[in-house]
């Protein structure tokens, strides 16, 4: 019993094709991969928007922005 098509290496290599586990699930893996990829972009955009919305409000405080721009001590 093996998750791959190889159960022994004592074979003719001409009989061996793919040696990764669970041959036959490639299309499902492809769909999972696409979801993973698209999910990253959505998460990135949401996270970035939330962060910038919050920080934009903070830096609209003139004193904080002044300190950052003039290079004085970081704001508490």
């Amino acid at each position: 019993m093996s998750t791959t098509i190889v159960e022994t290496w004592a074979v003719n290599m001409a009989d061996l094709g793919p040696i990764y586990p669970f041959v036959g699930t490639e299309f499902i893996l492809f769909i999972v991969g696409i979801v993973f990829w698209i999910g990253f972009h959505i998460t990135q955009l949401r996270t970035e928007n939330r962060l910038y919305d919050e920080e934009r409000v903070r830096y609209q405080d003139k004193e904080i922005l002044r300190k950052v721009l003039l290079g004085s001590d970081e704001e508490e």
Binding site: V23, E26, L29
Partner: peptide, 17 residues
């Protein structure tokens, strides 16, 4: 194609899919 058996570890012998 991304679901091809050749898009992975493969020894070049018989097709499994």
């Amino acid at each position: 194609v991304p679901w091809s058996e050749l898009m992975g570890a493969h020894l070049g012998g018989a097709a499994a899919t």
